[in-house]
Design a protein around this nucleic acid. Sequence first.
DNA 1: CAAATAAGTCAGTATTGCTGACACAATAAC
DNA 2: GTTATTGTGTCAGCAATACTGACTTATTTG
Lengths: 161, 161
Amino acid sequence: MRKLPHTNLYLREEEIRRGIELLYFAYRDFTKDPDDILAKAGFGRAHHRVLYFVGRNPGTTVSGLLSVLRITKQSLSRVLGQLIEEGFIAQNTGLKDRRQRLLHLTPKGQEFEKQLFDTQRDRVADAYKTAGPDAVAGFWEVLFHIVNESERATVLHQIEK
Amino acid sequence: MRKLPHTNLYLREEEIRRGIELLYFAYRDFTKDPDDILAKAGFGRAHHRVLYFVGRNPGTTVSGLLSVLRITKQSLSRVLGQLIEEGFIAQNTGLKDRRQRLLHLTPKGQEFEKQLFDTQRDRVADAYKTAGPDAVAGFWEVLFHIVNESERATVLHQIEK
DNA sequence: CAAATAAGTCAGTATTGCTGACACAATAAC
DNA sequence: GTTATTGTGTCAGCAATACTGACTTATTTG
């Protein structure tokens, strides 16, 4: 058995740690602006996720939301209930299946979601602009492959909507 | 004042939302493996962060950790205290400034941190390998510019260590 | 009709942030 | 050398978010 070429494990580890750290720092700051707005409205990050994905997938069901968010029904129930009660999200009984509750943002919910989205849009748009289109493509590509293989079909379906 | 060229806002928004969603899904799966290992040891994600940054910056102080993690002293105190008590982290009185507690991982802490790191290393290494070096450079570049401008110097100092 | 599914609910637990207040030792400033 | 500042630690309480487990109701499906 011949010797394999030496792969520089130290360099490799440095590159991995760089990705881990950038992911941590970027995610930390990325969530900060919406978190501050949410806190003033008496909400938290979980409310943002629900507003976001309901806004992005109008007519989705509770179970649809659960499979995107990968949290328990009980956890979702609390935040979704609050958003419905305060008039940010409305539900209609499903037409095909009357057990379903089809969810969508109310005008109030749309306005609030836009406010949250705008802070992240500005941040990401600036980063895209500075880094350039090739970098953006790489950014998508790496993130996509960090997602669990079993989840990639769902993610692809979501991001290409 | 002449008319500005029309920037396609719809396309733009789709690209931004793609980044937002990939960041969410990738981060969700990226934290899952360590979270499971941590849960078995009776720890949470906050413990991981402390182990990670102490491991990465041996000899760091409590205030050094606070400025990297951007959490309160009280929040850090709880998890750091547990990690010290259970023998994952040790502290030495600072030589120059005897108020400081210089933190480092014990062998037990190093072993545990490696276990956590390995799951993320495998995930990120696979993503890097699939996406290729140019994509990885773009991934770093975009993430770096998503970080708050005011934090970029600190982040750069950290990732280039 | 029986089984499965979609949704909702109640109760309890753990983690991780936060604020505010206070204490102590060591260092720096005057 | 007294005073102010800094690094660290601690107590107490609060809030958001996630979890498990058990159970109900309405509706659809086989």
